[in-house]
Design a protein around this nucleic acid. Structure first.
Lengths: 100, 100
DNA sequence: TTGATATATGAAAATATTATCATGTATTTG
DNA sequence: CAAATACATGATAATATTTTCATATATCAA
């Protein structure tokens, strides 16, 4: 008999966070921000070579989901990691050698 | 000037793995299998209360992406975690307190 | 105030994922 | 062999995500 105790809520929450990060561009954003305290949309835009509006959508989405925070300074908006824990995901994935 | 060295390939690979796991049912599967060396489709089906065919799709998908392995034994097919590293994702997520 | 720059917004289009259903295959049992 | 069980498959439908594009807003500088 298999027992299973994990909270369904927790799973959904976790999947939700994972989904937020499970995208090359968004993963790159997390990665970038784990190496740079804060970056403006424009800076990220250039480094990642991503269309401004699309990047904006991503950033806002990630902020909404609690992964990033933003702070306005004049014309710029600087984004930074809200939960530096998320960095661990990247590390974990980098060490994980799933064959594909 | 921001430097960015991460391999684009690696990001895509990582996002790919993450996507595979970023789903409540699939996360539950990983979780279940981290606590039980191997389980048959039927067992997982019952514990998760998931429709057989849908579960099969999930399992095969996860196997295809290198997260699970399967082994046939008579009528049953037993699935197990191929990369126990993936468990760390769960732990990580559980400790991560992203506010949502 | 005008123009330029940085970012956001929202609708629509393109694409991908997830779920459902009907049916197929393999294995075991009687 | 026929029936039952466990699982897989594949098409389609339902839904969600991602991208694009046109435009809006805010701030700064001249």
């Amino acid at each position: 008999m298999i027992t299973y105790q994990i909270n369904k809520d927790k799973l959904e929450k976790a999947a939700f966070i994972l989904k937020t990060v499970a995208h090359p561009t968004r993963l790159a954003i997390v990665d970038l921000l784990s190496q740079n305290e804060k970056l403006s949309v424009n800076e990220i835009c250039e480094v990642l070579n991503c269309e401004q509006s699309l990047l904006s959508h991503h950033l806002i989405n990630m902020k909404l989901k609690g992964i990033l925070r933003s702070e306005k300074d004049g014309l710029n908006v600087f984004y930074s990691l809200k939960e530096r824990e998320v960095m661990k995901l990247i590390e974990c994935i980098e060490h994980c050698d799933c064959n594909m």
